[in-house]
């Protein structure tokens, strides 16, 4: 399956994703600039993405830990998610998101 990630320069990247992996890992391993400092432990908020509207509703809802950690992200919007908390499945084939601004 494939996902489409728009980077901070507004360029869209088509990435091949495998079932069961964290979306953050797919984005990071493709060389896109997500720091993912905590390696997917939901402890750093540096894997913050904005999910394209239609896709947002297809995701399982963020749990309390993720909502708490989003407090450490910047410019949080209604479609904000931490990409390390999204596990790839067939239902997400074609998924689209944009990388959120990064901290210095």
């Amino acid at each position: 399956m494939r996902i489409f990630i728009t980077d901070r320069e507004n360029k869209e990247h088509e990435l091949v994703a495998e079932e069961g992996r964290r979306m953050m890992e797919i984005i990071r391993d493709a060389g896109l600039p997500v720091k993912a400092e905590c390696g997917g432990c939901c402890a750093c908020a540096t894997c913050h993405v904005y999910v394209l509207e239609d896709w947002f509703t297809k995701l399982t809802e963020a749990d309390e830990e993720e909502l708490d950690m989003l407090d450490m992200a910047f410019d949080v919007r209604d479609q904000s998610r931490l990409s390390c908390q999204i596990i790839m499945s067939d239902a997400l084939d074609g998924f689209k998101a944009t990388l959120a601004p990064d901290y210095d």
Binding site: E37, C44, A45, Y103
Partner: peptide, 9 residues
Amino acid sequence: LLPFFGLTM
């Protein structure tokens, strides 16, 4: 202004 958004390495 005092921003407190956690730490980074």
